[in-house]
Amino acid sequence: MATDTGPPDLTGDRDLGSARERTYHVLLFVCAALSVLVTLAILGTLLGDAVAFFRAVSPVEFFTRTTWAPSIKGVYGVWPLVYATVAVTVGSAALALPIGVLTAIYLSEYASESTRAVLKPLLEVLAGVPTVVYGYFALVYITPALRIVFPEISTFNILSGSIVVGIMIVPMVSSISEDAMNAVPDSLRQAGYGLGATKFEVSTGVVVPAAISGIASSFILALSRAIGETMAVTLAVGMQTRFPSAFTLQELLLRPGQTMTAAIVNIGLSDVTGGSTTYRSLFAIGLTLFVITLAMNVVSDLVAERYREEYE
């Protein structure tokens, strides 16, 4: 450090400079590596308690029984929760996937520049509304509206939850799909027109297949978001664990349920004792949820990677 006794040191404190550079390097790496640490922490936290839970409750019971009554009977069958989650996910997907893809097609193929400039930010707003507000919408406005069509609908019900979650994930589908469609080179479209195809045929026959990997990945991401959605479904679908007893619309969609996320909220906010089996069941559900969403995200990543059409 004190080497400047001889000729003038034109480079300044080189040692110090490189030490500083190394410090920055390490600090920035720590910032980046923290994400891995968080993942590991999640896994560790969830696994620790989940393993303890599965010592008390056999995994066979957890994954096969259709009753979830942790506090009263000590029965831990995860199926009612999975049912509600799947029902909300399927319902919202039925709404959001077609709408999202159509939106993407419109934005990428039909809309003029100025229309796009207006529509795209507005769609982003949909994703920016806090989910608890969507839950409020469902509970206070959508369910009463649905009651006009289905007079026997419960106040908390799976259908209205599906609708708001669907609205919520539309921008996710549309923006990722639209990016994929925009990446399709114009020459493919021109070739289609050259063969005499109409705009409709080019859109559905050329652009959509060419962008299919992006669309698929957007589907998976949106589904993963729907599965993990918490506050909206807690408010809209309710807290009543229930497995459908019959294959009717009433049983399937019009009655309350409790999704996995809502169960976590419910138990997390109730007065269970830390360290009890019920408390640990939180982490078992959380682990199930985490594994499902993580797997879907990874699959989406792989799909996008594997089937990506490389255009020059």
Binding site: T45, L46, T261, I264, G268, L289, F290, T293, L294
Partner: peptide, 9 residues
Amino acid sequence: GVPSVVYGL
């Protein structure tokens, strides 16, 4: 993509 409730846990 991890659900927010998992972060809560």
